[in-house]
């Protein structure tokens, strides 16, 4: 197991946000955390690398207790792509190089530069590597953010709504890259997502959160019309088309 989450609860100002969350993830698995706005998806994600401290429970990444480890130790095991990332006057190369911070001593080594260069090639960012990130489009910037998390050489990748503000082309690009990385390397990925169709296409494990607890968890078999209606309150049908599963809302939800 790469990730083992056991009975995690998080409380915000004495109001419970998530509770009794238990699941595990093997290498080469991509997990999508799904559920309506405000249900605690991002909270759960941030608990996994201890940006938020859960009230109770345990989170192990390759056996290391994330709630006891120091920040640097966590950063060597878990890469995190935040939903909001500031873009300063930095080249893409330097922005990605920042991902080596958990490994850098006093100065950047040749190895660090090589790893960054390889990650740039992996994400096909060669033409952008000396461009300033404050002049980049949302899709390009998101690739830089993912490359930064990759050069941390983590075992677990956490992505907070990685495609939320991207166009169709970039959504497919980004998630394709994540899937490829998870397939090629000994890593797992956890993503919070809103788009059920993208989740169905690129993830192989699913967790539906409802009222702060896991409503359903498992492989593609848990993505049923009943689950989705129970979680989102919208009647849907799940259809197959050319080998893809598609979630289609039935009528506008006039509440």
């Amino acid at each position: 197991m790469i990730l083992e989450v056991d009975d995690v609860a998080f409380t915000y100002r004495s109001a419970p946000v998530i509770r009794e969350v238990t699941f595990a993830l093997r290498p080469h698995e991509t997990l999508a955390i799904l559920g309506p706005n405000g249900v605690g998806k991002t909270t759960l994600l941030k608990c996994m690398n201890a940006i938020l401290k859960p009230r109770c429970g345990s989170i192990l990444v390759e056996g290391t207790d994330m709630l006891r480890a120091d920040r640097m130790e966590i950063a060597r095991k878990v890469g995190y792509v935040s939903q909001k990332c500031e873009a300063g006057r930095l080249t893409a190369f330097d922005a990605i190089l920042l991902g080596r911070r958990p490994h850098i001593g006093w100065n950047v080594s040749e190895k660090d530069l090589k790893i960054v260069e390889a990650a740039i090639r992996r994400l096909r960012l060669e033409d952008l590597s000396l461009r300033y990130i404050d002049e980049m489009s949302g899709g390009e910037l998101q690739k830089v953010n993912i490359a930064r998390a990759l050069v941390q050489e983590p075992r677990l990748l956490l992505l907070d709504e990685p495609t939320s503000s991207l166009d169709l082309r970039n959504q497919l690009d980004i998630l394709g890259i994540v899937r490829q990385v998870v397939a090629d390397h000994d890593v797992s990925a956890v993503m919070t997502m809103h788009d059920l169709n993208l989740a169905l296409r690129y993830a192989d494990r699913f967790i539906f959160l409802r009222d702060g607890i896991i409503h359903a968890a498992g492989g593609i078999e848990v993505v049923t019309p009943e689950t989705i209606e129970a979680v989102y309150g919208v009647p849907v049908t799940v259809e197959r088309y050319n080998g893809f599963s598609l979630v289609i809302p039935l009528a506008g939800h006039e509440a």
């Binding site: 941030k46 940006i51 878990v78 935040s82 990332c85 500031e86 300063g88 911070r101």
Partner: peptide, 19 residues
């Protein structure tokens, strides 16, 4: 490196191991 990380946002910095 810590300031570079904080410039990228507090959460990103924490993800990069910065207190």
């Amino acid at each position: 490196w810590n300031y570079n990380a904080i410039d990228a946002g507090d959460e990103t910095a924490k993800g990069l191991g910065v207190n």
